[in-house]
């Protein structure tokens, strides 16, 4: 098992290096460079710039370096925690990153747990109650969940919360707590705000996962060993939960890796509508402003999150399935 984890971690590191190459290419893609913006800004602030000044800046940022050297400079900095500067915020990227990334992880993990618990229960129910009215109702809800863009759902829920429930909406904290230090009251306030994002981000993933779970379970219920279990005289509940669900979970764990990108994507988009202090709003703003170091750092960390999630899924699968464990 330990060797298995080690090998998967090795794969992950290799993938990360390629992820970094893509990240670097994205920085280099847009027309114009960080330096041009910097020079334009300095010009705006005051007076002219001497050609020597510009040349000094060019050397410092390595504008004329060959591409592999540029990559190396950026990558080695990245590994050491130097992610470059955000020209828009005029701060090192690292200062903007951590807290927002923390909230993204928190919301993603909670959404994941929510959508798994709901998916398994709903999937088992609808697979074992096939061709009944509740199954059709669940199917309709699943279709809708998959068809509504998450930002639209966020808007509708916010309007609902504001107009019908009379709640203060948006953000993760009430005004009083936004800048307050952490306390129990602030934590409770956070919990009160979390249900909308979790529901909104989890909706489409839950609709999809519960559909996958239903399909898996229907497949497994056709397996011979389920018939064997029934032939032993086990009750239908034992047959389903002990023999069928356990095996239907394998493919679900395998698609865990696939459901994560959806959650992280959803989180970034929904955060804009819900005005949440997570990576999303800053990331898309950085893209629109061509603040590439900031944007790419965020993108890289989102990819790393995903890779860690996939590693976790692999380990879970090995734990669940003896055939993989003994490989």
């Amino acid at each position: 098992m330990a060797r298995y984890i080690l090998r998967r971690s090795g794969y992950m590191l290799v993938t990360m290096i390629f992820v970094a190459v893509i990240g670097f290419l994205i920085i280099e893609l847009p027309p114009g460079s960080y330096l041009e913006f910097e020079i334009a800004r300095l010009r705006q602030l005051g007076g002219d710039m001497a050609p020597e000044q510009i040349r000094a800046l060019e050397v410092r940022y390595g504008v004329h370096d060959p591409i592999y050297l540029k990559f190396w400079k950026w990558f080695s900095g990245f590994v050491r925690g130097d992610f470059g500067r955000s020209f828009e915020h005029r701060l090192p990227v690292s200062e903007l990153l951590w807290q927002r990334l923390g909230f993204t992880v928190l919301i993603s993990v909670l959404t994941m747990i929510f959508s798994w618990v709901v998916s398994i229960i709903v999937g088992v129910y609808s697979a074992t109650h096939r061709y009944t009215i509740p199954d059709y109702a669940i199917t309709v809800l699943q279709f809708i969940g998959l068809s509504v863009p998450n930002f639209l759902l966020a808007l509708v829920l916010m309007v609902f919360a504001q107009q019908v429930l009379g709640m203060e909406v948006g953000g993760l904290f009430s005004g009083a707590y936004r800048n307050a230090p952490w306390s129990l009251a602030k934590f409770i306030d956070l919990l009160k705000h979390l249900w909308i994002p979790i529901l909104v981000i989890g909706a489409s993933g839950t609709a999809w996962l519960s559909r996958v779970m239903r399909g898996n379970l229907l497949d497994v219920l056709n397996m011979q060993y389920v018939q064997t279990a029934r032939a032993k005289g086990l009750s239908e509940r034992t047959v389903i939960w002990k023999h069928a669900v356990r095996n239907a979970l394998h493919p679900l764990v395998m698609v865990l890796g696939m459901s994560l990108p959806g959650i992280i994507s959803g989180e970034t988009v929904v955060a804009i509508v819900l005005n949440m202090p997570t990576t999303g709003p800053l990331y898309f703003r950085a893209l629109l402003q061509q603040d590439m170091y900031l944007a790419v750092t965020f993108l890289m960390f989102l990819a790393v999150l995903l890779l860690i999630g996939n590693l976790f899924a692999d380990i879970l699968l090995a734990w669940l399935d003896p055939r993989i464990r003994f490989e």
Binding site: M223, Q224, Y225, A231, L320
Partner: peptide, 19 residues
Amino acid sequence: RGAELAMIFQEPMTSLNPS
């Protein structure tokens, strides 16, 4: 079932629960 009527199937590969 199981006590008085028991059954074995064609495919020994799939008739036991892999888990």
